[in-house]
Design a protein around this nucleic acid. Structure first.
Lengths: 145, 145
DNA sequence: CGGCATCCCGGCCGATACTG
DNA sequence: CAGTATCGGCCGGGATGCCG
């Protein structure tokens, strides 16, 4: 007993008035979709309703476990819907709700920014690491003098 | 040996070519500012250059440690600059770079969305918990400030 | 097919103490 | 004022296995 594993904004995450409730709404968004997979799930669902395995293969890298947890979390917060069809082979479809319609654009703007600023960020990071003389990961083959 | 403590996208996080590098740019943004404090730091700095303690008191809830780590991380990725003045009392100012100019708006859009959708999300969560017969967490103690 | 249960690890994050 | 160092917890999250 005593569940040790809660994860991904489980029911104990936001006491709703306990005092944690960040005064900054941005923190709440990040708490919701700031985890490793939720945002990507939303992006995939933005293209239309998808089945579980469809998402699993589309996102690539996500495990059944995390995908389930992320979907449950999104469902709990009313961002996606879960529909079960009584077919012979089990069929479950996930879709976005009207709530996320308004964040799709900012989210894509963020993606766009990442694409645009990516190289500059990498360069900055490289320069920073070089300045500190701290190679990120042991140059594979420095020898070569 | 072998540094145990790295944290907040430290130098060991991104092997820079190891293979992790998410194919989804959105993931990269979240990896950058998706942590607990970085986004809020950016928001504060968006109002203009700030000193360390200024940020520490403005954000409220952040520890020196996490603030330092977040700032270091943001600095490393070229999102903020760190300027040290040779004053009698040490004076360090942090400011945003041109890189973040393009995400300020999407970020604010997200905040705005959170503010707008917040109640609906809370309602959905409440309904979900009620459906599952799982009360969130028996208010520990509101303790009204 | 869709999901849950268990094990386990690494890293986020907070509290505390010490330094220039 | 502006950090840095150390300790410890808690939880995100990957791997695996079982079940309807």
């Amino acid at each position: 007993m005593s569940r040790r594993n809660t994860e991904v904004t489980d029911q104990g995450t936001a006491p709703a008035g306990a005092g944690a409730t960040a005064e900054c709404p941005l923190r709440e968004v990040l708490a919701l979709i700031g985890d490793k997979w939720s945002a990507q799930v939303l992006v995939e669902l933005g293209d239309g309703p998808r089945r579980f395995t469809q998402l699993e293969r589309a996102i690539e890298g996500v495990s059944r476990r995390m995908l389930t947890l992320s979907l449950r979390n999104l469902e709990r917060n009313g961002l996606v819907t879960r529909t079960v069809y009584a077919d012979a082979p089990p069929r479950v479809e996930y879709a976005t709700t009207a709530l996320i319609e308004d964040i799709r654009e900012p989210l894509e703007a963020l993606s766009d920014w990442a694409r645009h600023a990516g190289p500059a960020i990498a360069a900055a990071r490289d320069a920073y690491d070089d300045r500190r003389g701290r190679p990120p990961a042991a140059r594979p083959a420095p020898a070569r003098s």
